[in-house]
């Protein structure tokens, strides 16, 4: 069993109005959407493995972003969106209308979006522990590059052909570059 790595207490919003921001909601791309990325945009790929549905993921960066999708259901899935280049931080996860997780250790939740490539930032894993007032969650951003690649090959083959995939998660990882050198990812 995967042990609990980092537990954060679920906070409860005092009211919806307490969540004030001017964030932009973005929608996941489909494989057929031809996005012109140019010099100032890159693609963000994030894997999600959660034990419950999530309402939204809040990023701060060059532009505050809310990744919201009816597809963030419990289980395993991915979000692929286009973002302005720069350093982003996963600031907050909304579970529902009243409960959310806020990350104060921003250094553990930073990633960089580079232009013209698919930036895989890792898999956001969340396991809810307990219920209601005493609930918390075990969260982690895990490097599952090969799974992410296999996902793109299956679901986003055109996007993967048009854009190189780069690892943009915690630490440095040469795996994708190695595969390109060995021509194990079709370009």
């Amino acid at each position: 069993m995967r042990y609990i790595r980092f537990i954060v207490l679920l906070l409860v919003l005092s009211s919806i109005a307490a969540e004030v921001n001017s964030a932009t909601k973005v929608k996941p791309l489909t494989d057929s959407e031809q996005k012109l990325l140019g010099d100032n945009k890159g693609l963000l790929l994030i894997g999600l493995e959660t034990s419950r549905d999530l309402k939204s993921i809040h990023l701060s960066g060059p532009k505050n972003i809310i990744l919201t999708s009816e597809h963030i259901k419990s289980g395993s899935q991915y979000l692929l969106v286009d973002l302005k280049v720069g350093i982003y931080t996963i600031k907050k996860i909304r579970l529902d209308n009243v409960r959310y997780l806020k990350f104060k250790d921003t250094e553990n939740w930073n990633f960089s979006i580079k232009p013209g490539v698919i930036n895989y930032v890792g898999h956001f894993e969340l396991v809810q522990i307990g219920f209601f007032a005493s609930s918390g969650a075990a969260v982690e951003l895990v490097n599952r590059s090969s799974e992410a690649l296999q996902f793109l090959q299956l679901e986003y083959p055109s996007t993967l052909k048009r854009n190189r995939i780069k690892y943009a998660g915690p630490g440095e990882d040469d795996f994708f570059d190695f595969l390109y050198r060995k021509k194990m990812i079709a370009e």
């Binding site: 790595r5 980092f6 553990n108 890792g122 982690e140 895990v142 490097n143 998660g169 915690p170 040469d174």
Partner: peptide
């Protein structure tokens, strides 16, 4: 099977 991966497996278990 990938030793460098030990050092970058996640935000909490590496670094």
């Amino acid at each position: 099977y990938d030793i460098p991966l030990i050092f970058n497996i996640s935000n909490y278990r590496s670094g």
